[in-house]
Design a protein around this nucleic acid. Structure first.
Lengths: 365, 365
DNA sequence: CCCCGTCTTGGTATCGCTACCATCCTCCCG
DNA sequence: CGGGAGGATGGTAGCGATACCAAGACGGGG
């Protein structure tokens, strides 16, 4: 209070609010008038400039609060040449993935004041071309590429031809010249496998992911790595899957038909893990008592079904947000970096232990 | 071509593109200069005004295409007082629901040039209050309310106190004074039940939805209605569920333990239906040969699992889009309609027949 | 042949904000 | 005690588009 008076910044108290634009909303000028400063100062306060005295800042902040001022993004974007459009090209990842992804991306977009444009795209070259054309027509300057689209060389080529900035998300093993946000699929799969081994499982089954995604191979490598570092195990049973429930069902059928059957099955994603659980039930095997099942992704189904699936969690929303951050930086910085290294960001995954994993039946308790 | 020359609109062909703002992008003025018309005319063409001659329109359109012009949304919003912020308050609907919802909402938002602000909110009064406060602080003027939040009187009250426009989506039986987009849960459930009856099922089981959602009751009423209109059936078995997989599992256990067991079970949503299938498998019942299972919502899980779940599809993205349309209309039209009837929009649902439903075992083929 | 209404088109003034520069004040150092 | 560095503030000029009004062009009725 003292500060305020000393600095002669007193609140004017005009009875009527918002009389300026007649458009109803409060503008920066209203706040300026109310706080007895210039619009520029208000702008500085709102944007966190250091060149404002504390006293003034407080006065302005109070005025903002009292008037319920919120800056007009359109004007702000216009004046500061922000508000670029960013594209989000999505294929058909699982809906739960997309959902979280959207939340994260949209949040970051709002924070940066950029607009997010969604575009759906099949994996065919023709569809890619069409999608990219639509993005270009929409004035999009950068694109976020969630899986599985980030694996498509065609789409990347199309986008690069259109001189778009690209950030791939969650590609297993991305090219070095592509900006990318991802988890370490290798380390995560290794960690999960170690977890199974630590529980005492020795007869392991593994269901691989779709061969056209590099993440599949990374997860497989992680599994193998843990098995090898443990040593002295019977050779694990392996089946090829394609990330779908159906393919998981087929794989599970084969794995459980072998004799002796695995005591733990690690599926490369949750959909397939859920299928393993379904097949186990049909064979009247209790999960986790008779069979341990774990997945990867922590997708919706993992926590929907019962017992809950132990799996690897990716902070999808956070990753999407960082991808947008990265894109904004790249676009604003204008860093068409000399074709060399592009920024890669590795975020932490997390092993979520739910009810689907336990010690094998024979094990000492 | 003749038209063009007659009207003296010839393309100037300045070699260099985009020289104005040095900000890189092409502005309306560039196009105007290139096409030899005034910026206003370009604006009219781009916005589809009727007061432009065909010849001029063509010239301008070509200029737009050649220059790759795309209007600056920020400027447009600023000049035309658009670009309002709309909120999307989401609780924890299934992720797949949210995902589709976001896609539809975001698309509509982009179309209208409004910004979409996401806000997560638990169902407690405190959390609601906080969420609403954040929305207000964010300058949001209208809110879309997907289920289950649209059922919360607390949230509605909070929002109304903040003088927000509200559109509820998919509330089963919404108050008349609330703008709303939904399907006819009653009719849909009746249709599904008739479908089961038409297949020849007579011993039916039904799992109710969460009692705090009006949609649950509507679906139940639809089921009852179809059963009654058919007449002469053994009384259906009914269990209370809560829309979760776990609750479906419990309900299924009870339903399948009765003697004689139902030949068809209608769960009030897909998660519970999936649980019924899981429980059936554990009892070594083949779906659909030994038991028919149907759900409601066509959520992700319905098409993920095998056999695929027959269910009721809601056009979620479309509904979200219409909700945003409605909100924009309400906000721009300033229709604080006299507390009476608010617009309700009923969209068509669709019965999706997948593999989980078939004639009962005993039935003549 | 004039006048007026309708179709087209162009100017001008913002919209709300920030970039940029000018200014003024304060305080420190020689 | 003067000069200068740098903090704090204000003024001005747009950003790129549309709203609104004014003004030509054109054709038909009196």
């Amino acid at each position: 209070m003292h500060n305020v008076e000393k600095h002669k910044k007193q609140m004017n108290k005009p009875a009527r609010k918002s009389r300026s634009g007649a458009r109803g909303s409060i503008t920066i000028k209203d706040v300026a008038r109310y706080a007895g400063v210039s619009p520029m100062t208000v702008s500085r306060v709102v944007n966190g400039s250091q060149y404002v005295s504390d006293a003034t800042r407080q006065t302005v902040l109070q005025a903002v609060r009292q008037l319920g001022y919120s800056p007009n993004i359109a004007a702000r974007n216009l004046a500061s040449a922000r508000g670029e459009r960013m594209g989000l090209l999505y294929g058909n990842p699982s809906a739960s993935y997309l959902s979280e992804f959207l939340v994260g991306a949209l949040d970051a977009a709002t924070r940066h004041g950029v607009q997010l444009v969604l575009e759906k795209c099949e994996l065919t070259p023709a569809a890619s071309r069409r999608a990219v054309r639509r993005l270009v027509a929409g004035g999009v300057v950068g694109v976020v590429l969630p899986p599985p689209l980030c694996e498509s060389a065609v789409i990347r080529a199309e986008l690069q031809a259109a001189r778009m900035q690209i950030v791939a998300v969650a590609a297993g093993r991305p090219p070095a010249d592509l900006m990318c946000v991802r988890i370490d699929d290798f380390a995560a799969a290794r960690e999960m496998t170690r977890y199974l081994l630590a529980l005492g499982h020795e007869r392991l089954g593994f269901i691989k992911g779709h061969p056209n995604q590099t993440a599949s191979e990374e997860r497989w490598r992680g599994f193998v790595s843990a098995v090898e570092e443990h040593g002295r195990l019977p050779a694990p049973r392996v089946e090829q899957g394609f990330f779908t429930f159906r393919s998981g069902l087929d794989a599970a059928r084969k794995l459980l038909a072998t004799e002796p059957a695995p005591t733990a099955i690690f599926a490369s994603n949750d959909d397939m893990a859920a299928a393993v659980m379904a097949e186990a039930h049909r064979r009247v095997l209790e999960v986790p008592h008779d069979l341990t099942v774990v997945g990867f992704d922590d997708s919706l189904i993992a926590s929907t079904i019962w017992p809950g699936l132990s799996t690897i969690h990716q902070p999808i929303a956070q990753m999407a947000g960082e991808a947008v951050d990265m894109l904004v930086t790249a676009v604003r910085g204008g860093k068409r970096g000399a074709a060399g290294e592009a920024p890669h960001r590795l975020v932490a995954h997390e092993l979520i232990a739910r009810e689907s994993a336990a010690r094998p039946k024979g094990a000492a308790d």
